[in-house]
């Protein structure tokens, strides 16, 4: 039998025997960033289309999730850094080749925008809120007047945020599993799905819930389509990418991926949403939690499995 035995003297911590340099912080951040992107995207979309009053939760309530998610995500990102006190170096340069630089600057734009959006709608949550200082009121009045422009900026920047969470991985050609441009749209779709799930959860309006359940169904369909295409791409590619796909097709990540991400995170909530649209009584929290769980697991599994996949030499 032909055999190849490779013995390496290298045993660097976190690198060998298998790369495991990114732990829970990165996938958690990618989930929260995607969720924030999804929520902000819908808020901006329906503002631009002038449907603020039809989709009140999506435009005025759900966006409050975004700054909270982004701040927790930023804390996770900070915890991930090994040379923490130098984090400000991210903001002394712009490097167009580096997805991480894109991400740092996108967050620098999206986080304040999400906070501004919440400030504009704070009276929806706290009707007696008073800003006390006139200058704050003047600034908010300015943005209130130019809300459509702000919504356009938010729409584009949230889409960039959603796509970038996937591009961060796909830019690494050293990890064959990540090296597919499908991850950009897949993570964006997953973030939009999580965003619409949150809206369904928070909304008390039947028509709005119905619209977002329909949207979520379409997005889940797109996600399944993208996942199938991802595997088709891998299996038609080089040996390293076939090996990467095999991590999910019989390899060590098969069960978690198909059970947690695809079945529990996509197919089951899709069925529940269809049943709900057909007037069956289903507690709304079940599909919502499943979608959020699937979205989180997608990030964790792609992150961990990607670090296992490698070139052969």
């Amino acid at each position: 039998m032909h055999e190849e035995i490779i013995v390496s003297g290298r045993n660097n911590p976190l690198i060998d025997p298998q790369l495991h340099i990114w732990h829970w912080e990165i996938p958690l951040y990618l989930f929260l960033g995607g969720l924030a992107a999804g929520v902000l995207f819908f808020a901006a979309l329906y503002t631009i289309r002038g449907r603020e009053n039809d989709y009140r939760t999506a435009v005025k309530i759900a966006p409050f999730v975004a700054p909270i998610a982004l701040v927790i995500g930023l804390i996770a990102l900070f915890l991930d850094l090994h040379h923490k006190l130098y984090f400000w170096r991210l903001y002394t340069t712009i490097r167009l080749d580096s997805p991480m630089s894109w991400g740092a600057w996108t967050l620098m734009l999206v986080t304040p925008i999400s906070m501004l959006w919440c400030a504009l709608h704070i009276k929806e949550l706290f009707p007696k809120w008073d800003w006390k200082f006139d200058i704050i009121k003047d600034v908010l009045a300015f943005f209130e007047k130019n809300k459509k422009v702000l919504a356009w900026i938010m729409l584009i920047s949230s889409a960039v945020l959603g796509i970038y969470t996937g591009i961060l991985f796909s830019a690494f050609n050293a990890r064959p599993l990540w090296n597919t441009s499908i991850l950009g749209p897949l993570f964006l779709a997953s973030g939009l799905s999580a965003g619409s799930a949150i809206t369904i959860w928070l909304s008390k309006d039947h028509a709005e819930r119905k619209r977002f359940a329909q949207l979520d169904l379409i997005i889940i369909g797109i996600e399944l389509f993208l996942i199938i295409h991802m595997f088709m791409g891998f299996l038609a590619s080089t040996q390293v990418q076939i090996d990467a796909a095999n991590l999910f097709l019989g390899g060590e990540y098969t069960a978690p991926f198909w059970i947690f991400v695809v079945i529990l995170g996509m197919i089951v909530p899709a069925i529940l949403e269809i049943l709900e649209l057909r007037k069956y009584k289903i507690p709304v929290v079940i599909p919502v939690v499943l979608v959020l769980f699937g979205s989180l697991m997608l990030r964790f599994i792609i992150s961990y499995a990607g670090q296992v996949s490698r070139w052969l030499y």
Partner: peptide, 15 residues
């Protein structure tokens, strides 16, 4: 200048 984000570590096919 290094912030220890490990992007370079994951990007290196030679580890």
């Amino acid at each position: 200048k290094c912030i220890g984000c490990s992007a370079c570590i994951t990007s290196c096919p030679y580890d």
